[in-house]
Amino acid sequence: MLFECKNLNLVYDEGKDMQTYALKNINLSIEENKFIGIIGPSGCGKSSLLYCLSGLKVPSTGSAYYKNISLKTLDPNEKSSLRKNEFGFIFQKHFLIDYMTVMENVLAAINDNSAESKKKALALLERLDIGNVADKKPHQLSGGQNQKVAIARALINNPKVIFADELTASLDHSNAKEVMKILEEYKDRATIIVVTHDEAILKNADEVIHLWDGSIKAIDTRGLAAL
């Protein structure tokens, strides 16, 4: 298994009178090179699960495992190294660095400006149909274009896992479809974990995890289309 969660709980305001369970008793397994969707209403714990799987958040109890290694046992530097070398992140907001060009923003993920990396970054931008804005700054682009830059940034390090949190939220329907099509192209070399409330973008997912109030309500292994 690539990922495993065993009795994972994430509690906010631990030790205080009013504790909030973001995740409750999560048990799941994720295989390599699968397209996984995490779906549920706002505040049900989708993003929290993504952060626990990627090591950005430490579960209150239970564990998340990556390649059979508990993420809890890794020190902050090991976790950083794991995220840098094996994971790619796309957030709901693009979080591009405003003083850098599009090309530099993509290369910032690997901090490399070799000709080879530039060529690769440009190929990614062209694939996302924004090759023409490589020298522009984020403020000169539309929200959709910026999100595509963030996608290119997530893919530049050939990640083994791509974490995407509401990545189509700022895209129109056709752009969202196109972006998902590009992401799905990576399915044979990476595991794609997409958090969304838009069922439409998960139609080709291998597994869809339905969350409700911090707990797994159902795991659909056939994809939403088969529901």
Binding site: P76, S80, S81, F89, F91
Partner: peptide, 16 residues
């Protein structure tokens, strides 16, 4: 802060 938070999420260590 946003820039440093992003870089941290992308895998850059605090020491970096």
């Amino acid at each position: 802060k946003k820039e440093f938070g992003t870089l941290s999420a992308l895998g850059y260590s605090r020491s970096f």
